[in-house]
């Protein structure tokens, strides 16, 4: 097959050499997924898929039917559903996994010589993602930790639950404790724990909002602000506060907050949600 010209290849290589999300975005999206999957009412959900998943999840957790492996584990993390002492485990079709692994290996072996060499811009060559100047200290801590976690793992590790594990030691260690891992006393809280706490607070606010308890929402948001002033979910916090103020009929305050938000973050995905609130249109 005809390869790309030098000019076209340069365009790709040079253009994409430093392409990627900032550390702040990485941390923020993670926190939002956690908040959405944790069974929150997703009042602020801008993503359809997340909203779609959020409520069945909560229902499933209540019934103690932790079917989804990773969903289940996220719930355990938050202690949602796990308080009932439900150890979330998963059943996997072993033969299918074995077959899949074998096929993958065979393919890899066979693909080496047969592989159509269709390009030279390997993503590895794109270099490390550049750290963003993160505004929040929690961001920096998270991305550092995240980076070291990622490095410690094999290059192509499958998602949780898919990995053909050699050891089942983790079964015993996790299934025994239904308590969320964040609750375990640890001298240095992991970045993941911090993130889940932050997401948990926002989730509490969202649930309160969904349950028509705007005052409870405001107090959760105040706690969020106190503990995570520059947290990855600070935009979500401000938006939730606007909605809570609307619920309370404090329209002037809601409008002032919303305007400040729009001035500061005009491109935020939350702007349309605020437009539709009592504070909008802008």
């Amino acid at each position: 097959m005809k390869e790309l010209s030098r000019q076209a290849r340069d365009t790709l290589e040079r253009g994409l050499a430093f392409d990627g999300p900032s550390a702040e975005r990485r941390a923020r999206v993670k926190a939002r997924i956690i908040a959405a999957l944790g069974g929150g009412a997703a009042v602020l959900a801008t993503s359809s898929a997340a909203a779609e998943v959020a409520s069945p999840l909560a229902a499933g957790a209540a019934a103690g039917a932790g079917k989804g492996l990773a969903f289940g584990s996220l719930l355990v993390w938050f202690g949602v559903g796990a308080v009932a002492g439900v150890a979330v485990s998963s059943v996997v079709v072993v033969t299918e996994r074995a077959r899949g692994t074998q096929t993958a290996e065979t393919r890899a072996a066979a693909a080496a010589p047969a592989r159509a060499r269709v390009g030279a811009v390997s993503s590895a060559r794109h270099g490390p993602t550049l750290p963003a100047a993160g505004p929040g200290e929690s961001n920096a801590a998270d991305s550092d930790e995240a980076a070291s976690v990622a490095k410690a793992r094999p290059a192509a590790s499958p998602p949780p639950g898919l990995a053909p594990r050699a050891s089942t030691a983790s079964v015993a260690s996790t299934s025994a404790s239904a308590a969320p891992s964040v609750a375990s006393p640890s001298p240095a809280p992991s970045a993941a724990a911090t993130l889940s706490e932050e997401a948990g607070l926002l989730q509490r606010a969202e649930r309160a909002l969904a349950g028509n308890q705007p005052n409870a929402a405001l107090s959760a948001l105040a706690e969020h602000e106190r503990r995570f002033p520059a947290g990855v979910l600070h935009e979500e916090r401000q938006a939730a506060r606007v909605l809570a103020l609307c619920e309370l009929g404090r329209t002037a305050e809601a409008r002032a907050l919303a305007r400040a938000f729009v001035v500061k973050s005009p491109d935020s995905v939350l702007v349309p949600r605020l437009e539709r609130s009592c504070a909008g249109p802008f």
Binding site: K30, G72, S90, V92, S157, P159, P160, A192
Partner: peptide, 15 residues
């Protein structure tokens, strides 16, 4: 029954 996935796994997968 194989394993209980841990949130650490998901977190690392995400990262």
């Amino acid at each position: 029954v194989t394993e209980v996935a841990r949130v650490d796994d998901w977190s690392a997968f995400y990262d």
